[in-house]
Amino acid sequence: MDKMMVKNLDLYYGDFQALDDVNLAIPENQITAFIGPSGCGKSTMIKTLNRMNDLIEGCKIEGEVLLDGKSIQELDVNTLRKRVGMVFQKPNPFPMSVYDNIAYGPRTHGVRSKAKLDDIVEKSLMDAAIWDELKDRLKKSALGLSGGQQQRICIARALAIQPEVLLMDEPTSALDPISTAKIEELVSTLKKEYTIVIVTHNMQQAVRISDQTAFFLHGQIVEHGTTAQFFSIPQDKRTEDYITGRFG
């Protein structure tokens, strides 16, 4: 089953075309990795999936993105973002307590009961594998935590609204190897419940955790397929050059 579909997508920042005729299927309960050299359009593509590009002035989109077969343009944008959550490259916890960070999303969507919020906070932090570290510090500012902890707070925050799809734009690029390993492990367990799209510069990371890989170059998808096949028998010469490090 394909959770999301991208069809003939062109995206322009003013006159500059950042995505060129992208077609892509994102299968449910799998991890799809976007790889490619800097500036090739990976972040642009992932932000299109929850319409974060709407915030950018002069950004024009042609083509279609479907969520469960329905165009995301026809969904209410806030509903879309509730269903398609996002974790950013740079950890961006709000300057509030850990608890309020996690409860932000549920409160936004109308959850008021203290007991229910408590449950959501606990479950989200557990799912993000950080409950044990932080259960005694829920009232402390999230800004006082380490980068790796902050990123897991952001993952927990995204999980707290129970999205169907989770977008992650280089979630480990600002982290040390140990935090990275924790987050990779976490992502692998999350795919049971969520559909995950992850941008990464780290080829090993894509191999380790993803089921599907798409390779971007100059705003186009050069090749995509199952990760195993993609890395063992690349079809395109440019893919082969890129993954063997002869390129970019």
């Binding site: 806030n78 973002r81 959550g85 950013f88 961006n92 709000f94 932000y104 999303g105 936004t108």
Partner: peptide
């Protein structure tokens, strides 16, 4: 800007992102 973006990425409206996130910050 990340605070604002983080809030709208959770499905918050512009009003909520401004009044519950940016202004308190």
């Amino acid at each position: 800007r990340e605070y604002y973006e983080g809030a709208v990425a959770l499905g918050a409206t512009h009003e909520r992102a401004v009044f519950a996130t940016v202004v308190p910050a």
